[in-house]
Design a binder for these strands. Structure first.
Lengths: 170, 170
DNA sequence: TAATATAGTGAGTCTGGACTCATTTTGCTA
DNA sequence: TAGCAAAATGAGTCCAGACTCACTATATTA
């Protein structure tokens, strides 16, 4: 792959993340191209259909989250990850839950990373032992979506997470 | 308002609720008209813009929920309402959180009804006293959205709600 | 039942946005 | 630096879907 192609691909992904985050998945490809500083044809060269672009963004996003999660650990790892994620979702409208787009492996890796945080929290006695991965993931996604669409302020984030963590606590 | 107009208005709202619930807010007005058994012009006579239709549905939905909530009460009222709502969201894709559409009064009334359930649950000693309305609403919306998009099965719904209610418990 | 305002109809207009492709530009290699 | 394949360009095509309106049908009322 030529160097300019590589560079433009990254630029397009960055621009798309920004644009779709701000205006939702209905934002136009034209807008993405403009923000990336390339012609619309270039976007379609890299991502033949709009869906491919959405999928690519989501994949990258999930990969980054999994990395973040993997870098944490200990008694408060889960708590830290959860809190950080919600704050991020509330602040910028990160692309979450794009209807119809699914990227099983990427979701799987994130799930594994969160599962590991859960295991450590349980080992440290921070979280009840009968709690399982699926409901932790479910809560994570739910609260992020809530914060995302609801535009929660910091106080509401804190209060809501406090309830969730009281529920998880040993 | 003429009798046929009244009848068609209801039909259109029912059809729209069904269609948007199934295919999301991006579904076409044509489809709504077809399901309602009226011409597309009729839909636009009642609701000049698509947004008006979406708003009307949301208003009706929120009003119904507020009614449901108002009919409950006692120590387990909040729990019952919460559980019922999540199950409903997971089953049919009820229209929730339509971007850009807001109907302050309707949301307000639902909030009041939920607030009353919270008050009663606290009076009965089912829920901690330091929990406040905003975070309860936030959790409600979040979990519904999660269930909606995630297509949770009954088991996952139960486990997730168990964590939330453990967090709320006195 | 006649008069008429109100409501319904659906072919047609118009627009935004996804996607194409002939042409031009550019990075790479020999 | 010449040659060329890879990449970029952006005007143009195409279509779905929101919305219109001239006309027809019907509920209501006197």
């Amino acid at each position: 792959m030529r160097a300019d192609a590589q560079r433009n691909r990254e630029r397009i992904l960055d621009a798309a993340e920004e644009v779709f985050a701000r205006h939702g998945a209905a934002a136009s490809t034209e807008e993405v191209a403009r923000r990336a500083g390339v012609a619309i044809g270039t976007v379609f060269r890299h991502f033949p259909a709009k869906d491919d672009l959405l999928t690519a963004i989501l994949k990258r996003l999930l990969a980054r989250l999994a990395e973040d999660a993997a870098a944490l650990g200990g008694a408060d790892g889960l708590h830290t990850f959860f809190t950080r994620l919600v704050a991020r979702a509330a602040a910028r409208r990160t692309v979450v839950g794009l209807a119809g787009v699914d990227v099983p492996e990427a979701v799987g890796r994130l799930g594994d990373a969160v599962g590991e945080l859960l295991r450590q929290a349980q080992a440290a006695g921070t979280v009840r032992r009968d709690v399982q991965r699926p409901e932790v993931m479910a809560l994570l996604v739910s609260v992020c979506q809530g914060a995302l669409h609801g535009g929660w302020d910091e106080d509401l984030q804190a209060r809501t997470l406090a309830v969730v963590f009281a529920g998880l606590a040993a």
